[in-house]
Design a protein around this nucleic acid. Structure first.
Length: 209
DNA sequence: TGGACGATTGACT
DNA sequence: GTCAATCGTCCAA
C-alpha cells in the first residue's frame, strides 16, 4: 500500500497534519463537517465543503471493520487522514476519511457536501445539477470522480487524487446528530452528523419529512 | 464454492 | 411507494 511517509517526502511529522482526526470516531466525524475536499482527478479541479458524515469503527456491527481486517477494508486501519473507498451495491463509490491510529479500523463516511468549485465538472460527471450533484454518498463519489483506485491513498493530496483541507470546527449549535442511513445493524446508534440547514444534506428513501 | 446481501440511486407506478 | 440495477465480498456449508 502506498504511503507518503515511506518515501520520506512528508513536509512535517507523519500524521501531524491530520492529528485532529486522531480522536474517537464520533468526534472526528463532527470535526470533518465544514472541512473541504479537493479532487484533481483527471486534471479537473473540484472542491466541496463537507456537510454530512457518519461514524464507523470496530465496535460497531454496522461497520465494515466489525469483523476485523480484510483485503477490502485494510485502508480503514491506516493512520488518520487516509481514504477508504468502497463499492456500494455494485454501482456506487463511497468515500470515507480514515480516523484514529494505525491498526485501528475506524473512519467517517462522507455522505454529502456542498459544491464550492468545479461545478461544471460535477454536472458533467453526474448528468444532473443542483443538490443532486453531491447530496448523497454515491453521488458525491461520482461528482468527485472517485473510484477504488483511491482507496488507501493519503488525503494530503498529490495533484492526482483527493486532498482534505481542515477548517475551523463548527459550533455544536450548527451540528445535528441523528441515526445513520441505509444500515441494517445498530440502526439506533446516533452516529450521523450533518450541518443544520444545509440544502445538500442527503435525501434518501425513508427520510423524515 | 454457492449464494445472499449491501454504509445507494434513480426510474417508474 | 415500489423495485431494478449490478457485482464484489463474506459467510455458511
Amino acid at each position: 500500500m502506498a504511503n507518503a511517509a515511506d518515501s520520506g517526502d512528508m513536509p512535517t511529522a507523519p500524521g501531524a497534519e491530520f492529528g485532529f482526526l486522531d480522536a474517537p470516531v464520533e468526534q472526528a466525524a463532527r470535526r470533518l463537517l465544514g472541512c473541504e475536499l479537493v479532487s484533481e482527478i483527471g486534471g479537473e479541479r473540484v472542491r466541496v465543503r463537507i456537510v454530512e458524515t457518519e461514524a464507523y469503527d470496530e465496535t460497531d456491527p454496522a461497520s465494515h471493520t466489525f469483523r476485523g481486517r480484510t483485503a477490502r477494508n485494510a485502508a480503514m486501519f491506516l493512520p488518520a487522514g487516509h481514504l477508504y473507498v468502497y463499492r456500494s451495491h455494485g454501482i456506487h463509490f463511497c468515500c470515507n476519511v480514515v480516523t484514529g491510529r494505525a491498526g485501528v479500523g475506524s473512519g467517517a463516511l462522507i455522505r454529502a457536501a456542498e459544491p464550492l468549485e468545479g461545478e461544471e465538472f460535477m454536472r458533467a460527471r453526474r448528468g444532473r445539477g443542483g443538490a443532486e450533484l453531491t447530496n448523497g454518498p454515491g453521488k458525491l463519489g461520482q461528482a468527485l470522480g472517485a473510484d477504488l483506485s483511491l482507496t488507501g491513498t493519503s488525503l494530503t493530496g498529490d495533484g492526482s487524487g483527493l486532498r482534505l483541507d481542515r477548517r475551523a470546527e463548527l459550533p455544536d449549535a450548527e451540528i445535528v446528530t441523528g441515526v445513520r442511513v441505509g444500515i441494517s445493524k445498530a440502526v439506533d446508534a446516533p452516529r450521523r452528523f450533518y450541518v443544520r440547514g444545509s440544502a445538500f444534506v442527503s435525501r434518501h428513501h425513508g427520510a423524515p419529512r
